[in-house]
Structure formats: structure tokens, C-alpha cells
């Protein structure tokens, strides 16, 4: 159980693009939980979750990009 102890006590170093990539598992888990609650038929959950995940990711990237452009224009 030393590996489990190491995993929970020590942190994982995240740098550069890894920070942005950490967004994907979080959005995926939010999408799966939301769609598991909303979908009447559970077999529709995987596809619906992926669709929602892509939508959230695209939306957040669009907001981020537009804020970046606005900042550059105002600077």
C-alpha cells in the first residue's frame, strides 16, 4: 500500500499545457454525472456525455479566446 500512500500524500507536478488538459477529465465527469441524472435511458448516456463535454470545452475555449483577443486589443 506504499504506492497508495505516495499517491495521496505527494502531489503530481503539472506544467505548461498540462494545466489546460486537466480541464478535460473534469468536464467529462461533470457531463457524465449531468447526463446520468437527465437521461431516462442509460444507454444514451455515453454519447450524450461526449456531446455535452465537447460543447462545454468549445464554449470555454471560445470565451477564453475572445477574452484573450479583447485583452490584446485593449493593451
Amino acid at each position: 500500500m506504499t504506492w497508495l500512500n505516495d499517491l495521496l500524500v505527494n502531489w503530481i507536478e503539472i506544467r505548461g499545457v498540462g494545466r489546460l488538459l486537466m480541464l478535460i477529465p473534469l468536464i467529462l465527469s461533470v457531463s457524465i454525472v449531468y447526463k446520468t441524472i437527465r437521461c431516462v435511458e442509460l444507454k444514451k448516456v455515453p454519447l450524450a456525455s461526449i456531446k455535452l463535454c465537447v460543447m462545454i470545452l468549445a464554449g470555454m475555449l471560445a470565451i477564453g479566446f475572445s477574452l484573450f483577443v479583447t485583452f490584446k486589443l485593449l493593451a
Partner: peptide, 22 residues
């Protein structure tokens, strides 16, 4: 539904603990 919710939420929580340390 319960199994999916348990797996996803528990993994997210302990994944966070693994990334940042308890």
C-alpha cells in the same frame, strides 16, 4: 445509475486528492 454516479464522483474526488496531495 447509482453505480455510474458512484464511480464518476469518487474518481473525480480522489483524482483531485492525488493531483494536489491530501
Amino acid at each position: 445509475r447509482a453505480i455510474i454516479l458512484f464511480l464518476v464522483i469518487t474518481t473525480t474526488f480522489w483524482g483531485g486528492v492525488a493531483v494536489g496531495g491530501v
